[in-house]
Amino acid sequence: MIHISNILLALILLSVLLSLRSNRLMALVKLMAFQGIVVSAVPLFLETEHGLTFNLFMFFLLLILVKGLVIPGLMYIAVKRVVASREIEPIIGYHASLFAGLIMIVFSVYVTNHLHLAMLPVGHKLLLVTAITTMGAGFVLLMARRKAITQVIGYLMMENGIYLIGTALAKQVHTQYVVEFAVLLDLLVGVLVMGIVLNDINHTFDDVDTALLGQLKD
């Protein structure tokens, strides 16, 4: 029997691989919106012990709104404003990044199998694999790309991965809306601040290439 959650997880993995291959900033933003929505929807389709309460449902709606609409919207505006729309000369090439992504999947399966998490519910193993891969791929984007926007997207992807790990491991967090809401707010303000700095970088340097940010060193 195929669960909906498994399909969602496959979609997340697909979006991760696509984002490692993509060199257009706009395509990356759209992928992020898609990934944000799917990631926020995953907990809804996992078999939850407490069932779906109204509060929980409203919270996930808010999550989808912020991760799938507001944050990608901010990124969309940022991409529209910047001069460059493509990633040129990444530090690690696209094929190499894609390959790294595939290796990461194998690695996550290996790690998950060796953690001896017998107590986890059945669906959560695949969730953990996806989560670790997403986090790792976010890290690759962060390190291997030079445009500041791609780095922000890498950060968001990493955050998505960590959120999924939290979903897989720490059940208690997701019943405390105040805390989860605060985390979400932090993420939102974080992207907002990064967006403002990004805009200023673009304004000052006429580009968002972080290779230009190399004045301060010892």
Binding site: L142, A148, Q151, V152, Y155, G190, V193, M194, V197, D200, I201, T204, T210, L213, G214, Q215, L216
Partner: peptide, 11 residues
Amino acid sequence: ESLEATWKYVL
């Protein structure tokens, strides 16, 4: 310089 410092700091 301060833009660079901020970017590094935040990220």
